[in-house]
Computed example of a mutant assay.
Amino acid sequence: MDDHIMKAYDLFQLEDFVQDIYFRQWVLGQLEPEDEFWTNWQKKYPEKKGLLEQAALVIKTFQCDPGYVNPQADAESINSIMAAINLPAERKLWVRNWLSVAAVTLLAVGLSFLLLTDGKDRQPTYLVDSWKTDAGVKNYENTAQDPMYVLLSDGSEIWLQKASSLRVDESFGQSVRKVILEGAAEFKVQRDVKRPFYVYANGLTTKVLGTTFKVVSYDQDKVSVSVSSGKVTVYQDKPNKEIELSDELILKPNQQAIFFKTEKKLVKTLVEKPLRMPEELNISSIYNESPMNQVLKDLEMAYGVTILYDEDLLKKCNLTATLSSESLYDKLELICETIHAKYQIVDGQILITARGCI
């Protein structure tokens, strides 16, 4: 079954549609002519027309700005502009009057301004193979069992795992920061909005401005990128071809992307062991007949993940439990067992399906 069929698009908000690859491909006319999923979806959810139009305008503005030569989407730019609108969730979904048009116009203008002023710092996909053998490349190779510590000239830190190697171009830090990884490494990148940091690993490119993440590419057919803090953008390498907005995945903390090279398939999911966000460690873990909607919102904040569910169905559900040292997945199992629900991971989000409580 196609991944998009499982997604709860009826619960998506503006940001979710903008970041969804399948929706972006439809907006940009990149789907097969016989693919009528979105046409049929609009007929089923006519009340979502305004929301889809807003998301489509954002995508087209980002993709088609004439001053934007190499359109690699900047996840932080998207989110910062969306945050600037500062509308309540229900307004984002349901506004129908002239304020909706004004908000979309401001969003489009804001995106255009960002792209025009920041476009000079954006780079195309590099032909990685062309500088693997260049004399100006510094090589690091870890043949030991313990991680090798590498400190780059910009202050970024790398922990190169066993049986791994790292190549750093001599031009590192001049306009961009780029490295080639074979094997696995953990990165703590110094933030620099004017000099993006690129990691090339077995057909997959990871672009960041400043964050903490891990790349694993031991398997010649599979590469994974997991995020601990901040946001990263990942996409398949396409030599001699510009990267388009629809090619990219945006990852947040506790999300990961897995690239299956043979199938040329890039999948977003959650990491195997999601960790609590350091800034949210004080969120309550003791519940006594607490509304289930509040419990799930607490989990969203604690782990920095998105949990999709029907608030109306769960408004009569309560929870009495202590959720402390268990993993996120164990907590979800307990919650679902309590309210006779099920959960699944779809596109890096948690989807809870329930029948409600009496």
Results as ranks from 00 to 15, higher is better:
155 G>D: 04
155 G>Q: 09
155 G>V: 06
155 G>T: 04
157 E>T: 12
159 W>I: 02
161 Q>Y: 02
163 A>G: 03
165 S>A: 10
165 S>P: 05
166 L>H: 05
168 V>E: 06
170 E>R: 11
171 S>Q: 02
172 F>G: 03
174 Q>F: 05
174 Q>E: 08
177 R>H: 00
177 R>K: 10
178 K>E: 06
179 V>S: 00
180 I>H: 07
180 I>Y: 07
181 L>A: 05
182 E>M: 04
187 F>G: 03
187 F>A: 01
190 Q>P: 03
191 R>A: 12
192 D>W: 06
192 D>P: 07
194 K>G: 11
194 K>F: 12
194 K>Y: 13
195 R>T: 09
198 Y>I: 06
198 Y>H: 09
199 V>N: 04
199 V>E: 00
201 A>K: 15
201 A>Y: 13
202 N>F: 11
202 N>W: 08
203 G>R: 01
203 G>E: 02
203 G>H: 03
203 G>S: 10
204 L>H: 11
207 K>I: 01
207 K>G: 00
211 T>G: 10
211 T>P: 01
213 F>S: 08
213 F>I: 12
214 K>R: 15
215 V>P: 04
216 V>I: 14
216 V>E: 08
217 S>C: 09
217 S>I: 02
218 Y>V: 08
220 Q>W: 14
222 K>C: 06
223 V>N: 05
224 S>Q: 15
224 S>Y: 05
225 V>R: 00
225 V>W: 05
227 V>M: 08
228 S>C: 14
229 S>A: 12
231 K>T: 15
237 D>G: 11
237 D>I: 08
238 K>R: 12
239 P>R: 13
241 K>H: 14
241 K>L: 11
244 E>L: 13
246 S>F: 02
246 S>G: 01
247 D>A: 04
248 E>Y: 04
248 E>G: 05
248 E>L: 10
